[in-house]
Amino acid sequence: MHPLAIAAVLLAAFTHATWNLAAKRASGSRHFVWLYSLGSVVLYAPAVIWVLSTTQLEFDTAHWVALLMTGILHMGYSLTLQAGYRVSDLSLVYPLARGTGPLLSFLAATFILHEPANIFSVLGVLLIVGGILMVSGLANEAHKAPRAGIALGLLTGVFIAGYTINDGWAVKTLMLSPFLIDFTGNMLRLTVLAPMALRDPPALLAEWRMYRSPILIVAVLGPLGYILVLYAMKHAPIGHVAPMRELATLIGTYFGARLLKEQVTPIRLTGAVLIVTGVIALAVTG
């Protein structure tokens, strides 16, 4: 992989884990997704306006389909992830979602988009996914994990795989701007969820006051992290970028242990080593 693509993915991993920590801390907010989507739209609108004014791209049916799909898939991802955080730990839902996503993304990129795969890239994906399962505790204590958390984590992973393939196609083949893709997702969430969020303005204002910091963190870092990932996808195979993003799992697990006081066992540390090894395997094969 190109060094700039690797750097973009690594920075995105840190921003992603950071905003997920904020999202977990705001799990009690009913309208958190709508509030941070509003913040992202306001903050990133100038950049999107600049992109549209300087781009000569002519939109056809494929472009509109890609943008519609990214909006739907990202809304499903956001709502499912936040629902998971309401019923279970960050250190369970986050690794499970991030483990399911790259596996499905790699398979789709290989068998649907016909991206090349070799022994090292396959080994890298298997190490990352296996490491994530160990970090989450599902490899040895699945019976103790909340069933709702497992189900929502898996469903979140399906949405991750879906938007990864769709958005990778959009930036690599359709040449859509990463800013426009992320902005579209936020606009759709903002529009669809508005009737429910605006039904009780006093309650919405109270949530804003209570969760102001997490809302702003996600509004800024959510789009930034994903724009970096989309940039990497323009310069590297989707099937490699998607698993490399899962370095965020290490950071997220650390946050869960140190900041949320969740338990870290030797098997979780072993899983972390497997994830790093898998990332290295993918980095040297691109």
Rank of each mutant, 00 (worst) to 15 (best):
A161F: 14
F255T: 03
A5Y: 13
V48H: 01
R30N: 15
T55C: 03
P237I: 12
M233E: 01
G124R: 02
I160S: 04
L104A: 10
H235D: 07
A194L: 13
A47D: 06
Y94H: 02
E115V: 07
L123S: 14
L198K: 13
V241R: 00
G124S: 07
Y85I: 05
L113S: 03
A139C: 05
H31A: 06
L138A: 15
L152P: 00
V229L: 12
L193V: 10
T55S: 15
L204V: 04
A281G: 00
G256W: 09
L57E: 07
G84I: 06
A117D: 04
A139I: 03
Q263L: 11
K144L: 14
L250W: 08
Y85Q: 05
P223N: 11
N186V: 12
V135T: 08
I238C: 05
Y226M: 08
P102R: 09
L188N: 00
T164L: 15
L96D: 01
V192E: 07
A283R: 07
S37Y: 08
L68Q: 01
A12W: 10
Q56Y: 10
F14H: 08
F32E: 00
E58F: 13
M187E: 02
Y254Q: 08
I132N: 00
W34A: 00
L247S: 13
G131I: 02
F32A: 03
G71Y: 11
I132E: 02
V51R: 07
K261R: 13
R258V: 13
L4C: 02
R258F: 06
V87R: 11
M75Y: 09
T164M: 14
L127Q: 01
R30P: 04
V241G: 01
S88N: 12
L67A: 05
I160L: 09
Y231M: 07
I251T: 09
S78N: 13
A242S: 14
H74R: 12
G39F: 10
M210Q: 15
G130A: 06
S91K: 10
A151R: 10
T249L: 11
A62H: 12
D182E: 15
L4W: 15
V241C: 07
A12C: 13
L4T: 14
T80M: 06
S105Q: 04
V171W: 12
S88R: 05
L259G: 02
A83R: 13
L21I: 00
H16G: 05
K172Y: 05
G39P: 00
H74V: 04
Q263F: 13
V48D: 02
R212Q: 13
A109E: 05
L204P: 04
Y163N: 01
T270E: 13
G252I: 06
I238K: 08
S136N: 00
V220D: 03
L269N: 03
L152C: 10
T285R: 09
L188R: 10
K172L: 12
G162N: 04
V284M: 14
F255V: 02
G28M: 13
H235F: 14
V218R: 03
F255G: 00
A13S: 15
Y44M: 08
L205V: 14
P214S: 02
L79Y: 07
Y44H: 00
V125F: 08
L73I: 10
T18K: 01
F120N: 02
Y211M: 06
